[in-house]
Design a protein around this nucleic acid. Structure first.
Lengths: 114, 114
DNA sequence: CTTTTACCCATAGCTAGACTATGGAAAGGT
DNA sequence: ACCTTTCCATAGTCTAGCTATGGGTAAAAG
């Protein structure tokens, strides 16, 4: 019964998960688990994408038509569902990136106002 | 019956509103309306804090003890409720700022992975 | 060989928080 | 007389992240 994972985590900033997933899939098709790992790796263990956030997000993205899915075995011989960007997904990525940048710029201006 | 405000707006990124309010109040007590105006001004009209977001947020911040409120007339002779940071609020601001920076750093690493 | 660990998927239910819509009141201009 | 601006606040909706839970398969450890 133990406290495991006592390390202080940083959660995914709300509203950025789609962007992170889309960006990650920009390099080629991946399965869900791999997406989470890659985000964790690239963020140097700072961003932890919980499975309970990831899979529902992927479902929504399927419905929105941003990604397409296909079952096929992973490198390790396990069943895995590979997701890849659709054309709409690629466009959405662009939109999210520019809105994110714009918003961060604006926030920076507020925060810099000593 | 008119469309007004047809200008494309950028909404407040979820999770950043407390930080923006706390930061704004760091310069001294202000009333709600003034907070919204200041954020709008500093962000060069990019961030629009809706009243339906602002006042509920201020209520929550009162409950959390991050701000204290006091009624007194505004510069324009109107009744206004002035909010100011408490000690806890100042501490919270520090926490939010460092977590924000950490998260943005991490996101940047993911986005830079061409 | 049995147990554990890592891999891999997914849903249900909770909750925070930002939005729209709506309501009010009081000051000042035209 | 009206309208705009200033100022406050709540109700109700909805997105989307979380925890908790459940399952299945391959490989490594004991």
């Amino acid at each position: 019964m133990g406290k495991r994972d006592e390390r202080p985590r940083t959660e995914i900033p709300p509203g950025t998960l789609y962007m992170l997933i889309l960006k990650t899939l920009g390099n080629g098709a991946m399965h869900g688990y791999g997406i989470a790992q890659r985000i964790r790796l690239l963020s140097r263990e700072v961003l932890e994408v919980e499975e309970g956030s990831l899979y529902p997000a992927l479902q929504r993205m399927l419905i929105k038509g941003w990604v397409a899915a296909e079952w096929r075995p992973s490198e390790n011989n396990r069943r895995a569902r590979y997701y890849q960007l659709t054309k709409a997904g690629r466009k959405q990525l662009g939109t999210e990136l520019s809105e994110f940048e714009k918003a961060m710029d604006a926030i920076a201006h507020v925060l810099e106002s000593a």
